[in-house]
Amino acid sequence: AEIMKKTDFDKVASEYTKIGTISTTGEMSPLDAREDLIKKADEKGADVVVLTSGQTENKIHGTADIYKKK
């Protein structure tokens, strides 16, 4: 799966169907969080990951919607 910015995804959204939401939390780098989200998306058969939230304090927390091409 590839990560797309919401603004970029909005241009092609009609080509995809939302298949779920994924999240990651833990003591990790932003890059590790990104890789974890991609891994989870791949496991669910998603083609595209669109980040919906991200937070960093002591731990990273990120959520994303996942989509499959129609």
Rank of each mutant, 00 (worst) to 15 (best):
E35K: 14
A13L: 04
A13F: 07
T56I: 09
G62W: 15
G62E: 12
L37C: 03
S14T: 11
V50T: 02
I66E: 02
Q55V: 13
S14D: 10
I60E: 10
T17I: 15
A64Y: 14
E43M: 09
A1G: 02
R34A: 08
G26N: 10
E35D: 10
K44V: 11
E43Q: 09
E2K: 15
E27I: 12
T17W: 12
D42C: 13
K70T: 10
G20F: 03
T24R: 02
D32L: 12
Y67D: 02
I66Q: 03
I66C: 04
I66L: 11
I3E: 06
I19Q: 00
V48M: 05
T63L: 08
M4P: 02
V48C: 05
M28H: 06
A13C: 11
K5E: 15
K5R: 08
I19V: 06
E15A: 10
D32Y: 06
G45R: 05
T56A: 11
S14I: 07
G62C: 15
Y16R: 00
V50F: 00
A1N: 01
A33T: 07
I22S: 02
T52G: 11
E35I: 14
L51M: 12
G26C: 14
I60L: 11
S53M: 13
H61L: 14
D10Q: 08
T24Q: 05
A46V: 02
L37P: 00
T56L: 14
R34W: 11
Y67E: 02
A46N: 00
T25M: 10
T7M: 10
K70M: 07
I60G: 13
L31T: 12
N58K: 07
K70R: 09
T63R: 06
T63G: 04
V49Y: 03
D47W: 03
D32M: 11
Y16A: 01
K70I: 13
K11V: 08
L31F: 10
E27L: 13
T7D: 12
T21E: 13
M28D: 06
P30V: 08
T56H: 14
K70D: 04
Y67W: 04
I3C: 06
K11M: 09
A41P: 00
G20A: 07
K40V: 06
T63D: 08
V48R: 03
E2M: 15
E2R: 15
Y67T: 01
K44G: 04
R34F: 14
L31G: 10
K59E: 14
V49S: 00
T21Y: 05
D32G: 07
I38N: 02
I22C: 04
A46I: 01
P30H: 06
K11N: 08
I3A: 03
D65K: 03
Y16T: 00
K59S: 14
A13I: 06
V50P: 02
T17H: 12
A1S: 04
I38P: 02
S23T: 11
K40D: 03
E57A: 13
E57C: 12
M4L: 04
Y16D: 00
K68N: 02
K59R: 09
D47M: 04
A41D: 00
K59C: 14
A46D: 00
T7Q: 11
S53W: 14
M4H: 02
E15V: 06
E57I: 09
Y16L: 02
T56R: 10
K5W: 14
M28W: 04
K40I: 07
G54S: 12
T52A: 10
T63M: 10
T21F: 07
G20H: 00
T21S: 12
G26M: 12
K59A: 14
V12L: 07
L37N: 00
M4R: 01
M28A: 06
E27C: 15
E27W: 14
M28E: 05
V48A: 05
V12M: 06
K44Q: 12
L37G: 00
Y16V: 02
D42S: 15
S23P: 05
V49A: 04
G62T: 15
L37Y: 04
T17F: 14
S29C: 11
D8M: 04
K11Q: 07
E35Y: 10
V50I: 06
N58L: 12
E35H: 13
N58D: 14
A46F: 02
D8P: 01
M28Y: 05
A46M: 01
D8N: 06
A41K: 00
K18Q: 08
M4Y: 05
Y67F: 07
S29Y: 10
E15K: 11
L31P: 07
D42Y: 11
D32W: 06
E35C: 12
K11W: 05
L37V: 03
T63A: 07
Y16P: 02
G45N: 07
V49W: 01
S23H: 12
A64C: 06
I60P: 11
G26W: 10
D42E: 13
T25N: 13
T25C: 15
L37S: 00
K70G: 06
K69A: 05
I66A: 04
T52E: 08
T25V: 15
T56S: 12
K59Q: 11
K6R: 11
G20P: 01
F9V: 01
T63Q: 11
L37Q: 00
T56V: 10
G45A: 05
D47N: 07
Q55S: 14
G20I: 00
A1I: 13
V12A: 01
L31N: 13
K6Y: 05
K6L: 09
H61T: 12
T17P: 00
E2D: 05
T7W: 09
S29P: 07
K69Y: 07
L31Y: 12
K11Y: 06
E43D: 09
F9N: 01
I3K: 01
D10I: 06
D42L: 13
R34G: 04
I19H: 00
V50G: 01
A46G: 04
V48S: 00
E15C: 15
K11P: 05
E35A: 14
D42R: 14
G45E: 05
G62Y: 15
T21P: 01
M4A: 02
E15W: 13
G54I: 14
A33M: 12
T56W: 14
K11L: 11
E2V: 15
K59F: 15
I22W: 03
K44T: 04
T56F: 11
K44Y: 10
E2C: 15
K68V: 10
V48Y: 03
G45S: 05
S14M: 09
M28I: 06
A64P: 02
M28S: 06
A41H: 00
V48T: 02
S29A: 08
A46Q: 00
L51K: 02
L31R: 12
K69F: 04
K40C: 06
L51H: 03
G26V: 12
T52W: 12
I38C: 07
K69T: 03
A1T: 06
A13M: 07
G54N: 12
A13K: 12
T52S: 10
I22K: 00
D65R: 01
E27P: 13
P30A: 14
K40Q: 14
T63P: 07
T56Y: 11
T56D: 12
S23W: 13
S23E: 12
A41N: 02
K68E: 04
L31V: 11
D8C: 08
T21K: 05
R34V: 12
G54T: 09
V50N: 00
D36E: 14
L37T: 02
T24N: 06
T24I: 12
S14A: 13
A13R: 13
M4D: 02
A41F: 01
T7Y: 08
S53R: 05
S23D: 08
E57P: 13
F9M: 04
D8R: 03
D32E: 12
T52F: 09
S23V: 09
Q55M: 12
